[in-house]
Design a protein around this nucleic acid. Structure first.
Length: 275
DNA sequence: TAGGCCATCTGGTCCT
DNA sequence: AGGACCAGATGGCCTA
C-alpha cells in the first residue's frame, strides 16, 4: 500500500473518467478506445458523426438500429448504462489492485517509499514462490524435528515429539523461519523468488535470484529482503493432542510435494521478456 | 525514444 | 436482466 507512492500517485487511480468519457464523446468522438477488432463488431454509439458521408451515416445508423433492436434502449439509456458498466469495471479493477497491494504487503521484499512497487506479474510470481518456499521450509522443519525427537515413528508421532515441537515452534507463534533472512542460519532454505526445486543453497547464486531479479534489475526492489515476521507468525495454537488423532496444525498438515510448473527456464523467459 | 507497466474502455461470455 | 469476469485495444506515464 505504502510501498510506492510516487508511481501510483503519478497517475490518478480513480479519475472522473466518466466525465472524461462524456467530454471525449462530445469532442473527439471517442474513437480512441475502439479497437480494430472491436470495429468489426457492432460499434459503440458514441462515434462522431461529423464529417461522415451519407454512406457512413447509413452504416452507423444501421448499426445503431442493430444495437437498439438488441437492447431496446435509447441512446441516452445506453450511454447511462455504459457509464454504469464502466464504473463497475473500474471499481472491480480497483478492488483487484487493493488486493494486489495487500499481497505486496506480506511479500518479503524491500518495502518503502524509495523502493519501486512490484509489478503485478512480479507480485504474483513472488507470491507463488514464497508460498512454495514456505511449504518446503515447513516440510524440512518437520523432517528435522522428527529426526530430533525420535525418528518420526508412525505410532508415536505425537507422543514422541509433538508437544514440545508444536509448543515451541508453530502453535504458540514461535519464531518460525518465515523468511530466508531468518532461517538461513539453521538450514538451507528456498528463496521466495526461486522455484523451490532449484533454490538450494548451492544454486542460490546460480540462476533463480538473478533471473527473477532481472525482472526489474535496476530498481533495487528485490534487494536483500528484510527479516520481517511472515504470515506464519500468526498460526493459531492447537491443543495437543489425542493419541492417534491427526493433528490439524500447520506443522502436521504437510502439503503435498509440489511439482513446480514455474521452472527456472520459464522464470528466465519471463525475465528476458521483461527486458 | 523504445519498452514496460498501468488504467480505462469496451464487447463478449458466463453465472445468478 | 443484471452483474461479474475476461480479454483485446488504446493511450499515458515512467525509466533506461
Amino acid at each position: 500500500m505504502d510501498s510506492d507512492t510516487s508511481r501510483v500517485s503519478s497517475r490518478p487511480s480513480s479519475p472522473e473518467a466518466d466525465d472524461i468519457f462524456l467530454s471525449m464523446k462530445k469532442s473527439v468522438g471517442f474513437s480512441g478506445a475502439v479497437s480494430s477488432t472491436q470495429s468489426d463488431s457492432p460499434p459503440d454509439l458514441c462515434g462522431d458523426l461529423r464529417g461522415m458521408s451519407s454512406a457512413d451515416e447509413d452504416s452507423i445508423s444501421l448499426k445503431m438500429q442493430y444495437k437498439k433492436d438488441r437492447k431496446l434502449l435509447s441512446e441516452n439509456e445506453l450511454q447511462a448504462m455504459r457509464l454504469k458498466i464502466n464504473s463497475r469495471e473500474r471499481k472491480r479493477m480497483h478492488d483487484l489492485n487493493i488486493a494486489m497491494d495487500g499481497l505486496r504487503e506480506v511479500m518479503p521484499y524491500a518495502h518503502g517509499p524509495s523502493v519501486r512497487k512490484l509489478s503485478k506479474i512480479a507480485t504474483l510470481l513472488l507470491a507463488r514462490n514464497y508460498i512454495l518456499m514456505l511449504s518446503n521450509s515447513l516440510e524440512e522443519m518437520k523432517r528435522l524435528v522428527s529426526e530430533i525427537y525420535g525418528g518420526g515413528a508412525t505410532g508415536g508421532h505425537h507422543a514422541g515429539f509433538h508437544p514440545s515441537a508444536c509448543g515451541s515452534l508453530t502453535h504458540t507463534a514461535g519464531p518460525l523461519p518465515t523468511h530466508p533472512a531468518v532461517s538461513h542460519a539453521s538450514h538451507p532454505v528456498h528463496h521466495p523468488l526461486l522455484p523451490p526445486a532449484v533454490s538450494t543453497a548451492a544454486s542460490l547464486s546460480a540462476s533463480g535470484i538473478s533471473a527473477v531479479a532481472s525482472v526489474r534489475p535496476h530498481h533495487g526492489l528485490l534487494k536483500a529482503p528484510t527479516a520481517t515476521a511472515g504470515p506464519l507468525g500468526s498460526v493459531p495454537a492447537f491443543q495437543h493432542w489425542g493419541a492417534g488423532m491427526p493433528c490439524p496444525c500447520s506443522m502436521c498438515q504437510v502439503p503435498p510435494p509440489h511439482v513446480s510448473s514455474m521452472t527456472t527456464t520459464s522464470m528466465a523467459r519471463l525475465a528476458s521478456d521483461s527486458k
